[in-house]
Design a binder for these strands. Structure first.
Length: 621
DNA sequence: AATTCTTGTCATGCG
DNA sequence: GACGCATGACAAGAA
């Protein structure tokens, strides 16, 4: 009896793990918590030890598990996390290799030491585990997981699983180290089972009848083994996915099913016209099969409690994948950094805190430029394009004008002003090359700028410079533009200027300031574009990686669905009605409910969505 | 001659 | 309200 019980519960656990691996969350925490001894019972390897891994807890959040940071189980927990990450990175579960080796390792540790939570011993439980070194090491940091995943993907892309040979070897060594865990006769396993009392009671009675049917149990063993042996999943194909969902009912969790189920072992089920009665007494074979499905399908059911059929698991996967895409790639590491960077740029003062690499060789340092708005009295700002053309006659003119009419108290000599003219705080304009003619693409001028032509210096003056000369302004254009506002206003008030002169001076200053601002603005725009291009490239790589992951997961899911369909058919093949006739899966479907009851209802569209009470009415009829 | 690029300028909004 | 900065839009000139 223990053997049968353990057999099915182990199968349930394995199936739950499989669902977790393909992205389906199954709530089996309470049920599994410390109840089962992860003994190896099948020829496929140490599959039963999978229950030691809190897969679904670690799927959604690494912090979701209730382990205390100092709990000795934490290392085991992190090992499970890491292995889960690797298995997912593989896309297709490869239990016989790394995971199985670790699981057997865990079994060995638990069964040998009996000290729950003891630190993993690298030397115990075999010596060839492929991940032994890693599992004994410190838990991987979250930052390392992505790199790990990438590495795994790259290895798989290259057509090789991570250390396959080592995995097989490790498995063999594990078996050698723990002979009682593999290939043992079922009777021996039943004797060696360490299922505790609660375990037996939890799902007991539904299996008590089944235990009396060794034939059925042995018959069902095959589909379970078939379902759970994933080493050759890649070779499988989906036969009839549409057949699966009809057997699925809703709103049943494994925990509920097992704890609130029929403790008497009754599996209530119904058939048309009452031809199918509760069979725990009269049809043990049918009951056994129903109990099997009652334990199996709540898991599947729980995974699709939104009402979606199991056949929509692929859609499930798509949603999960794209949820992860939305949450992690685009949301966090992608746009977050981008936003902060752009905001930094947007918040930069006057755009003068940009990368110093854009400074022209003759320009001051970046710090000097960044302090422009506060230190304008230290020199001129920007206005490089016209300064060179002015430093000749215009600068001289400004000098003599200042000499003659400069009011007292400005604190600036013409030499200081002239020195300020040579400063270049722009980012895109190279230092002026006097007399070198047009400066490449920058030879272009605005509609009101000076047109550089071969000829006298008069032609090189900008419109403002010419106007300044025409109006005999006492200040150079550079002075007008770069002078601090206080000093500028002081000069304006000190000179006896006409309205036209004042207006021109203000326009010159405004245009000069705006020109520098436009240059800075364009530079920032280019920087932002360059940054976005890099970000797009990074996100594209991330998307490609996620698409590869999705393809692999879809492949695994297809294999799993094919296995499940096979199991479904096997279950129905063993079902018999009162007259001993086979029950056609085309006419009936299995419904599992939260109270543990299993109903066999006529198969028609929408039958799986019927309420249990309605189904019971059908049974009474 | 048409297109593209660069630059200056204006208008506008914001602090 | 003046001032400076940022930026979109436009135009002119050069390549």
């Amino acid at each position: 009896m223990q053997y049968v019980k353990k057999y099915f519960t182990e199968g349930l656990i394995q199936f739950t793990i499989l669902l977790s691996l393909v992205g389906v969350r199954v709530d089996v925490d309470t049920y599994l918590n410390g109840y089962f001894s992860p003994l190896l019972e099948t020829d496929e390897g140490p599959s039963s030890a999978y229950i030691q891994t809190p897969f679904h807890s670690s799927r959604d959040t690494w912090e979701g598990h209730s382990l205390h940071p100092k709990c000795p189980d934490l290392e085991q927990y992190f090992t499970a996390r890491r292995l889960l990450t690797e298995v997912r990175a593989l896309g297709t579960p490869r239990f016989p290799t790394q995971l199985s080796a670790w699981l057997v390792h865990s079994v060995s540790r638990d069964s040998d030491s009996g000290a729950a939570g003891a630190a993993p011993d690298p030397q115990s439980g075999g010596s060839g585990g492929p991940d032994r070194g890693d599992s004994a090491g410190p838990p991987p940091s979250p930052a390392c997981e992505l790199a790990e995943e990438d590495g795994e993907l790259q290895r798989q892309d290259a057509g090789q699983s991570p250390e396959p040979a080592a995995g097989e070897e490790g498995e063999a060594e594990e078996r050698a180290a723990a002979p009682e865990l593999q290939g043992a006769p079922q009777e021996a396993l039943a004797h060696s089972s360490t299922l505790d009392r609660e375990n037996v009671l939890s799902s007991a009675s539904s299996l008590s009848t089944l235990a009396q049917q060794p034939l059925l149990a042995a018959g069902v063993e095959h589909p379970w083994r078939e379902l759970l042996s994933l080493s050759n999943l890649e070779d499988m194909e989906i036969e009839d996915p549409q057949q699966i969902p009809d057997a699925i009912s809703r709103n049943v969790s494994l925990h509920d099913a097992m704890l609130s189920g029929d403790r008497d072992g009754r599996a209530s089920w119904t058939g048309p016209g009452g031809s199918l009665e509760p069979a725990h007494a009269t049809h043990p074979a049918l009951l056994g099969a129903l109990n099997l499905t009652a334990e199996l399908f709540p898991l599947v059911e729980n995974s699709s409690r939104d009402g979606a059929a199991l056949s929509s698991l692929s859609g499930f996967l798509d949603e999960a994948v794209f949820e992860q895409i939305n949450l992690m790639g685009l949301g966090l590491d992608g746009l977050g950094g981008l936003d902060s960077r752009i905001l930094d740029e947007l918040d930069s003062d006057s755009g003068l805190s940009l990368d110093s690499s854009f400074r022209s060789p003759g320009s001051p340092s970046a710090s000097e430029a960044s302090s422009l708005s506060h230190c304008e009295d230290e020199g001129a700002v920007g206005y490089s394009t016209d300064s060179d053309s002015l430093s000749g006659d215009a600068a001289a003119g400004a000098s003599w004008s200042l000499k003659e009419r400069r009011p007292q108290g400005t604190g600036r000599s013409p030499a200081q002003l002239a020195q300020g003219v040579l400063h270049d705080h722009t980012y895109s304009s190279p230092p002026p090359q006097r007399g070198s003619g047009p400066r490449g693409q920058q030879a272009g001028r605005g509609p009101l700028g000076a047109v550089k032509k071969e000829g006298g210096e008069e032609d090189e003056l900008s419109r403002d410079e010419r106007r300044a000369r025409a109006l005999d302004l006492p200040l150079s254009v550079q002075d007008i533009v770069n002078m601090p506002v206080e000093e500028f206003l002081e000069l304006l008030s000190g000179f006896q200027l006409s309205d036209a002169q004042v207006a021109l001076i203000r326009d010159i200053r405004r245009r000069g300031k705006n020109k520098v601002a436009a240059q800075n603005c364009r530079r920032r725009k280019l920087d932002a574009i360059a940054g976005l291009e890099g970000e797009v490239e990074r996100l594209r790589r991330h998307r490609d990686r996620l698409l590869r992951d999705r393809a692999q997961h879809s492949k695994s899911l297809g294999c799993l669905k094919q296995r499940l369909g096979q199991l479904y058919r096997d279950v129905f093949r063993r079902l018999r009605d009162e007259q001993g006739r086979p029950v056609s899966p085309g006419r009936y479907a299995l419904q599992c409910h939260s109270d543990g009851s299993v109903l066999l209802v006529p198969h028609r569209p929408g039958a799986q969505r019927r309420r249990p009470d309605r189904a019971r009415k059908d049974k009474q009829h």
